[in-house]
Nucleic acid binder design. Structure first.
Lengths: 210, 210, 210, 210
DNA sequence: TATGAATGAGAGTTCATTCAT
DNA sequence: GATGAATGAACTCTCATTCAT
């Protein structure tokens, strides 16, 4: 969203260059607490505690609690779409595209676990807020992407002809993202491994193939 | 004014049934609002507005906001387990059991949509609260039930031998219940129809079988 | 305050004749609860519970919580002054007057324990309320009565000449009435016995006389 | 801004002492209002008004209204028992002990008037609350202390042989402490003067000695 | 950069009171 | 006489936010 700090003369109240490391740290802390307790239930004081400072001090770094949430979500979505776009640009066949997208998604869950969980939980409530209109935009883009892949897959015989496309879309979408609620980075399964297993279930089912 | 039920056409033969009806109405309203905005973000005033009364009036019927949540969740879980237990008592083969459980689940989503959505969203935060310890109990029972069915299915050849049981359990669990977030009763698909489609994807995959 | 029901045609909402027994019962209950928990801390519902009815039902008998308090206090004060006036009319010597007044007071504590405790605790807060102006009146009358007796006693040599009259008045007043906070009717000491012991301490001191 | 106490004339050498001072101020204010209107009847807004701040601001300094009450009472009792213990350690004869204890009590009324009045009024209601169990403890210790002194006094001939010890204890206890309800610091009588007069009445009675 | 103290807008809850039945 | 349901004002407490230092 910001094409890198090439304009050092800008004089924003909120320093975007002064201590980016501290900002990132604080955002990571905030994301974790938000994810664990929910955005509303999380007090700004709790975040500050976790960061070893007082509540008021956070306002030197951020305009508001909402702007923290905003930054966390945009950070995640920018990253996610960069990966998705790379996959779509390569444009392999439908089955390979699904595989690549699901794998990319699990990698994002691995990198941005808290943000993903947060996104899952808060996204619906935030829909009406103009500041978060990009969430609806992303959702739309996401839906188009998946519906397109599924439609092409059915047309080309990669996927079953009797598939209810919209239902299958929801099935895929939910199935992948809820994983953020139980996934813990550094566990026994790597994101790629989980992706592989999920894909095998989704593509071929849990019943044995003849 | 009514000298006991001598007039069977009277609308309220048993006046002591009137109160529970009002309670149920209010709980339904509360569940909807909770599900839409989240438990924390929902004010007791909002529920009262929706019910056409003042905030304080709710306290004639309920002890607290929390006790409303409690009643909503127990109402749903009691109902759910009655159905599950019926299925488990019948004890058909693993594939039929999965089919029956998933179908029962979608029927519950149909009957208790708000409660299910609420359960999905709030259950994790409520874990630590002793009052809601039954949530953890239910979760445990649920997990045992599914792991058992899957294990038996793999052993008997009903399910693929290479299945990661725990992963498959999570996959099934999440896949079914998140549907509550988008399902709207009275839509184009009946719960049974959705269950059928989900089961076909879960059991046989989205890729065509040879 | 009401010279007995000689006007049966009166049509008050609050029936003063209909069921005087029930009223008295309810007032006794209210007085007890008020005395135990304090007027403010006592909910109208608590009184109703104790009386075996619902909160709203009390309003058939009384206009308000405050009017219950009012009736309790006037009932006590009317009774008290009837006794005091009898003593003052007899007008014996100062030492005998003190004896008679203190004995009468302990008898009132015995008969109206709850009302006395209530009076002790709430009287100061009620001072500003016009409805309870009779409390200040009573207090004034009370003070004059005691100061008069003490003054006469000092002048006549019945009491010590070096007595600080105002201090002695407060000493006597408080000493007697706080007993309501621990006195329980039906205990080992009769009111007369307690009065006798108190008088012996007050008049002659706890140190032995030569 | 102040590089440690190099400037002894600075008004706040130890900035960490500033906060306790504010707390003490606020507690004094709260105690006064509590004493005047009663704990229950006192709103937190009233205290805040009196302190020149908003109700919510009090919660920066205190956890709850109850914790203010708690601090006020413990502050008083700690102080009181320090004095009493000093008297008991010196352990003079019974008559001198009574004199010392009563004098100490009046001094405490002088220093903690509001707290004493509060203690008198609220102590009974607080008995059941575990947080205030120290009130019952103090009461017990207090009773033992007085009963002991009186018993020794009677045994040694310092007090009348016909004294009902328990009754005399209550008499002394109440007599002294109710004074808090009318005592105003800075009046015509010093605490020591009031103590002297009270003692003369209690020890030798109001009737003249032969 | 961070603190300490305060603000002000609500939140959940309580309770005396009303009133149709 | 009493009930059940509701009102509405007030209460304690929470929390995002501000700002002088």
């Amino acid at each position: 969203m910001n094409d890198n700090g090439t304009v050092p003369t800008s004089k924003k109240t909120t320093p975007d260059k002064a201590a980016p490391a501290r900002r990132a740290e604080l955002l990571a802390t905030a994301a974790q607490v938000f994810a664990e307790h929910g955005y509303r239930a999380t007090t700004v004081r709790r975040i500050a505690d976790e960061a070893g400072m007082l509540a008021g001090s956070l306002y030197y770094h951020f305009d508001s609690k909402e702007s923290m949430l905003d930054e966390i979500l945009t950070g995640f979505l920018d990253d996610l779409w960069a990966r998705y776009d790379a996959v779509l640009t390569a444009a392999p066949g439908p089955r390979e595209t699904v595989t690549a997208l699901v794998t990319a998604s699990f990698r994002e869950i691995d990198r941005h676990r808290a943000a993903v969980a947060l996104y899952q939980k808060e996204s619906p409530h935030l829909a009406g807020n103009p500041r978060f209109s990009y969430l609806a935009d992303s959702r739309r883009k996401f839906e188009e992407m998946w519906l397109g892949v599924l439609r092409r897959g059915v047309a080309g015989g990669d996927f079953r002809a009797d598939l209810d496309i919209r239902l299958a879309y929801r099935f895929l979408r939910d199935t992948v993202w809820v994983a953020a609620s139980w996934y813990r980075p550094g566990g026994t399964h790597s994101p790629e491994e989980i992706a592989r297993q999920y894909l095998s279930m989704v593509l071929d089912g849990i019943a044995p193939r003849p």
